[in-house]
Design a protein around this nucleic acid. Structure first.
Length: 554
DNA sequence: CCGCTTTGCGCC
DNA sequence: AAAGGGCGCAAAGCGG
């Protein structure tokens, strides 16, 4: 496959071919060049600096290598090892977003880096890796994720502001003037003030509210809703309702609509590789926590629908695969892994199975979770052994790795942070440091599973992205649009990814292709399983729904 | 006045 | 009923 590197040269772009020849095109000629060369893997410093403009010009890229993201993976990977030859500028390079001043900055730090040398270095590191196949897959998946992320920001999630507005109005009354409370919230605030005998109380202030609650005789140390729920007092009901609505107003109210859901689309900014485990982070709009409450506003365009798919119990299935635990994989043969554990007689109830598995993944030690884990360890020694070993490694300060070779950060500054998080003064005798060590062990325990789960999801997304494109190609070519339109059919005119969150995707598709999309979503999950675990028999069943509104899924 | 931290809560 | 991992965000609070 051709590997062609693009490099900015003032107003032009230098095009470096695999055979070493270099040509230059003016920047505005790039979309045509990229469109003309299907099948190329485009190598560039950072997808966020190249791809949005191509998408805006109607050009979709099939493959790329994102040197920034790949450098970050290699920097920490135990399959690569530290490379003193890396220019530290790569570690300092930040992604950019539209409207970001850095985009228009003449002194973009990316331009001081040498992508040709960096690509050569990365290829050499990969070639020397003892786990070349896995690490190569991870780099490809990470880069593909960068493409998918840019595409989803470009196309956005269909979002009906009118539906969202009706929903808000129905819950809290009409939109108030800036800085005022909506009527229902004002009313609830009044009830809270009356119940506490504090006519001037601002319920938005936790400190003030806490003092008022204590003065009213409630023995609380904080104002969290699950703390309040424990008490019978006239203030509890209106206060909980106030908090629920105030939260919705602040996080996904009218100002969120104004800012993030303009033009009929919600366009979050995804940050691939933004979490140490390899999960994506997001910036702006709170894409990682779109409350169930507002999902009715995500409605497909007329004549289109949403295909919503999520993986049931991704992490325990991934654990079965990476540990080669056939007993756990047997339980995972069931569409409900927890039910599979009950059927196998490991635990008595589904609830026990769930709490036990979560305890194993997160390091739960107390309560029912702590009691369940030893039972699971007897039945699933390889799976539990893998996470226990990851925890022990973290406790002694060692680095752990995902299946494909994403390395955990070394403990160091983070240990000090963890101590600070616990909010306790250092004690002589090492109790705090033991506590920090165990906390780090819980992190590394979870890292290997969460991180490998993120790798599965990346492979799923990458394969699905290509399948959706081809699906659009075939149907548009044969069908309604005809050959002339085919070449010009943009991403947003075909079935496309609209949203992604850890283990869930939403595809926006012409209604007539929905069944094909469902098949492709399932096929892509099969691909991801084989890419990570080969022939090891672990299933990744999906819950899939074809709906008009996101709220109708699940 | 700004910018950072804390609090509380949404998601997987 | 809460616990155990990972996040982002808004408002309030606070220090400079």
């Amino acid at each position: 496959m051709d590997r062609v590197l693009l490099r900015r040269r003032g107003d032009a772009v230098a095009v470096h071919e695999a055979d070493g020849t270099v040509t230059e095109v003016p920047a505005d000629g790039l979309p045509a060049l990229v469109r003309a060369r299907a099948g190329v893997r485009w190598v560039w410093d950072d997808t966020t600096r190249w791809y949005p403009a191509l998408l805006a010009a109607g050009v979709r890229v099939e493959r790329c290598a994102d040197l920034r993201l790949c450098a970050a993976v290699l920097r920490r990977s135990p399959y690569a090892g530290p490379d003193p030859a890396e220019d530290p500028g790569w570690a300092a390079l930040e992604p950019v977003t539209a409207g970001d001043p850095a985009l228009f900055d003449l002194a973009d730090p990316a331009d001081a880096l040498d992508p040709v040398a960096e690509d050569r270095r990365q290829q050499a590191v990969l070639a020397a890796s003892p786990q070349r196949a896995r690490l190569g897959l991870l780099l490809a998946a990470e880069s593909s994720g960068a493409l998918a992320a840019a595409e989803m920001t470009h196309t956005g999630m269909p979002w009906r502001a009118d539906v969202h507005d009706r929903l808000l109005t129905g819950l809290m009354g009409p939109r108030p003037a800036a800085g005022m409370r909506p009527p229902v919230l004002e009313e609830l605030a009044g009830e809270v003030r009356a119940a506490l005998g504090t006519p001037d109380l601002n319920p938005d202030s936790p400190a003030v509210l806490l003092r008022a609650l204590q003065t009213a005789g409630l023995p609380v140390e904080d104002t969290r809703s699950w703390t309040l729920e424990r008490f019978e007092h006239p203030v509890v009901a209106p206060l909980l309702e106030y908090k629920r609505l105030a939260r919705l107003l602040a996080a996904n109210g009218w100002s969120w609509l104004d800012t993030w859901a303009r033009g009929g689309r919600f366009r979050p900014v995804y940050l691939p590789g933004g979490v140490v485990t390899g999960r994506w982070a997001s910036s702006g709009g709170g894409a990682l926590s779109v409350p169930v409450q507002v999902r009715p506003a995500a409605v497909a365009d007329d004549g289109w629908c949403l295909v919503v798919a999520d993986v049931a119990q991704l992490e325990p299935r991934v654990l079965a695969g990476m540990s080669g635990d056939t007993a756990l994989a047997d339980a995972a043969r069931s569409a409900d892994l927890y039910a599979g554990m009950v059927d196998a007689g490991v635990v008595a109830t589904r609830a026990e199975a769930k709490v036990g598995v979560l305890g194993a993944l997160y390091g739960g030690t107390r309560g029912e979770s702590g009691r369940m884990v030893p039972r699971l360890a007897r039945r699933y020694p390889r799976a539990i052994g893998l996470v226990e070993e990851a925890a022990r490694a973290g406790e002694r300060g060692a680095v752990v790795s995902t299946l494909l070779g994403r390395g955990s950060p070394a403990p160091g500054a983070a240990w000090a942070e963890r101590d600070a998080d616990l909010g306790e003064a250092p004690e002589p005798g090492g109790r705090d440091s033991d506590r920090a060590r165990r906390a780090w062990g819980r992190f590394t325990r979870n890292f290997v599973v969460q991180g490998t789960g993120a790798e599965w999801a990346l492979c799923w997304l990458a394969d699905l992205r290509n399948r959706l494109w081809r699906l659009g190609e075939g149907r548009l070519g044969k069908g309604r649009l005809g050959d002339a339109r085919l070449r010009d059919a943009r991403l947003e005119e075909r079935p496309h990814l609209a949203f992604f969150l850890h283990d869930e995707v939403v595809v926006h598709t012409p209604a007539g292709l929905a069944d094909d999309v469902v098949a492709e979503v399932r096929a892509a999950a099969g691909t991801a399983g084989r890419l990570l675990f080969g022939t090891f028999p672990v299933d990744f069943p999906l819950d899939v729904a074809v709906v008009r509104s996101w709220a109708d899924a699940g």
